[in-house]
């Protein structure tokens, strides 16, 4: 027993030696990128000045000498936008990891139940008939939830093999809303609402303000806490319902909770930014390469990598060309080659 205790202690030590720098990196990477991102843009602002401006709401004297336009640019434009990139990236990283676990499938993300297609349709509908930014966001959110609701309860009509049926339902509902969106695009005014719909579907953080950031902050943080707390149990869910149940976990209730929170997170993210694909799919794979598949360690890594990844993508979208590049285009262009590389390097069992 004594020997065992000793070996447990030594293993713990071994873990923590590796853990401390990793966790420092995991927190430091997104934070550093956050500050760096604030400095980037057409109007150059140094990192020291950025930090000063950030502190200025608390210590107004600290930002003396910095031009007002820089302060306004950081607080009103860059800060909400980069915060959104951080939150949405973290959200996709976490929900992708959770969905891959509960679907026992490393090739899905939180869009598998059709939330993005539903949100796309909701946004297109509002853009076509109202055009108001706030309504677009609400409509996207509501239709995103509706799509998942239809997939989930549609699958309950069948008795057997609910996981496969659920996946199939998600694909069906997704295609259905995709077709509806195409119908709206076909009907839309090619000079006015059609470009608006098209750009929305390509994804952008251009229109983020503090006002529409608020629901994103609240739901994302709530959802991240929920998934964080359950992260070790994702391991057990990934073994399948029968085994989870034999290990004393109620798989149905837990999956329902995870799907609910992940869907809220994804719907609010899509409604704020438009369609940004690939993050939820790619990030968990990158995370597994670093810490392995165990979800207690994987989830924090996915959150950190997701946040960092989307901030980098958004920086590129803002700075690469004089005009903005749509985010959905960049995540695809960068995410797909990364995924191909990761799949080559990953071991057989992911």
């Amino acid at each position: 027993m004594k020997r065992l205790q000793k070996s447990a202690a030594s293993i713990k030590e071994e873990y923590s030696i590796r853990k401390v720098p990793l966790y420092l990196i995991l927190i430091g990477l997104p934070l550093g990128l956050f500050v760096l991102s604030l400095t980037l843009g057409r109007y150059q602002i140094g990192p020291i000045d950025v930090l000063k401006v950030m502190l200025s709401p608390i210590f107004p004297s600290i930002a003396e000498g910095i031009p007002d336009i820089a302060i306004q640019l950081i607080l009103r434009v860059r800060l909400p936008r980069i915060l959104a990139a951080l939150l949405i990236g973290a959200s996709y990283g976490a929900t992708g990891t959770a969905f891959q676990a509960i679907f026992k499938n490393p090739l899905v993300d939180s869009n598998i139940l059709g939330v993005t297609s539903g949100a796309g349709f909701g946004a297109a509908l509002a853009l076509l008939f109202f055009g108001d930014q706030w309504l677009v966001q609400v409509s996207a959110f509501v239709f995103g939830l509706l799509a998942v609701f239809l997939s989930f309860f549609g699958s309950r009509l069948y008795r057997s093999s609910p996981l496969l049926i659920l996946t199939l339902m998600g694909i069906l509902v997704g295609s259905f809303f995709g077709s509806l969106t195409s119908l709206l695009k076909y009907a839309a005014d090619p000079l006015d609402s059609l470009p608006a719909i098209t750009f929305w579907l390509l994804g952008s953080l251009n229109g983020i303000t503090w006002q529409n950031l608020l629901p994103l902050i609240i739901l994302t943080i709530l959802g991240l806490i929920y998934l964080w707390v359950l992260r070790w149990r994702l391991n057990i869910l990934s073994l399948g319902d029968a085994e989870a149940s034999a290990l004393g976990v109620d798989p149905t209730r837990m999956k329902l909770g995870i799907i609910l929170f992940s869907t809220l997170m994804t719907a609010v993210a899509v409604s704020a930014s438009g369609v940004i694909g690939w993050v939820g799919l790619v990030i968990p794979h990158a995370g597994r390469l670093i810490v392995g598949p165990e979800h207690k360690r994987l989830l924090p890594v996915s959150i950190s990598l997701g946040a960092a990844f989307l901030m980098i993508i958004d920086d590129l979208a803002r700075t690469l060309l004089p005009g903005e590049i749509p985010l959905g285009v960049l995540t695809g262009l960068i995410g797909v080659p990364i995924l191909v590389l990761l799949m080559r390097r990953s071991r057989t069992g992911w």
Binding site: A101, K104, N105, P106, N235, S238, L239, G240, A242, E243, A246, R288, G292, P293, E294, R347, T348, G349, W350
Partner: peptide
């Protein structure tokens, strides 16, 4: 349960 391969290599 009967042996099967889990999706992830724990």
């Amino acid at each position: 349960p009967q042996m099967h391969t889990p999706a992830f290599a724990y």
